[in-house]
Structures are given as structure tokens and as C-alpha cells.
């Protein structure tokens, strides 16, 4: 069993893995991934990203997640700047057993939840053993 990580700040992307047009730093969202018999569930922290600004697509076995962050309104003078603003980007390699047509996602309070259902044939089946 993995240990629960402590609350921590977001981390900067070390290598963006994609060309970045808007400039500024880019961040790797922190994620949790769970698997049940029927699906994989992914949670990603995307603070400051409105649901409409999330771009999630699945292509050739890769799930690409991009989030465009709201920039702060420029108000007065900065007194403390402990974190930076930047878009989120992360790519996941998925198994072929995911039914890509049935992927569903929702975003609530800055947390994205993605449901990745397994294909029927990949779901475990209980085999009845006859006497």
C-alpha cells in the first residue's frame, strides 16, 4: 500500500513534452489513479482552471490533459508571491483495453475526474465451475 502523501504545492514541469505557446511556467498536475473491475478513475488537481478551459483528448492510446489557468487580475502591488501561474499539461499512456468512446470527465472545485471504462472483453468474468 502506498503511503498517503502530505499536502504539498504543485510542481513545475521539468520537461514540457509539448510545445507551449502561451509562455510562462508550465505545471504537471498531481494525480491519483484507481482501478476497479469496470474502469480506471483518474483525479487531477487543476486549481484555477475553469471546466471550459480543460482540453482532454484521447489519441492513439494516449490521454492528453491540458488546462488553461485563469491569470490573476492585476490588482495593486504584490506583497507575497509564493506560487506562480501557469498552464497544466500531462500525458498518460493507456492500455488498449480502454473503451475510448465511453470516456467521461467532470470538473468540480478545481479537481478533474476522468472515468476510463474498460472494454467489455477486458473486464474480469466469473467462470462458473460445474460439478
Amino acid at each position: 500500500m502506498l503511503e498517503t502523501p502530505e499536502l504539498s504545492q504543485k510542481s513545475r514541469a521539468e520537461s514540457s513534452g509539448a510545445e507551449h505557446l502561451r509562455g510562462g511556467p508550465q505545471f504537471v498536475p498531481q494525480v491519483d489513479i484507481y482501478e476497479s473491475d469496470k474502469e480506471l478513475v483518474l483525479f487531477a488537481d487543476l486549481p484555477g482552471v475553469a471546466p471550459a478551459d480543460i482540453d482532454l483528448h484521447y489519441e492513439r492510446g494516449q490521454l492528453v490533459l491540458q488546462g488553461k489557468v485563469m491569470r490573476p487580475r492585476q490588482e495593486g502591488t504584490a506583497i507575497a508571491t509564493e506560487y506562480e501561474y501557469g498552464d497544466f499539461h500531462r500525458v498518460f499512456q493507456l492500455h488498449e483495453t480502454i473503451d475510448s468512446t465511453a470516456i467521461e470527465a467532470e470538473c468540480n472545485n478545481g479537481v478533474l475526474t476522468v472515468h476510463l471504462p474498460k472494454e467489455q472483453k477486458a473486464q474480469p468474468r466469473k467462470i462458473n465451475v460445474r460439478q
Binding site: M1, T4, P5, L7, V31, D32, E35, S36
Partner: peptide, 10 residues
């Protein structure tokens, strides 16, 4: 479900 990855803190 089984946990595969946990990066988010609680």
C-alpha cells in the same frame, strides 16, 4: 478499487 498512483496530498 485498487490504488495505482497517489500524488495528491490529503
Amino acid at each position: 478499487s485498487v490504488k495505482h498512483r497517489q500524488e495528491r496530498g490529503f
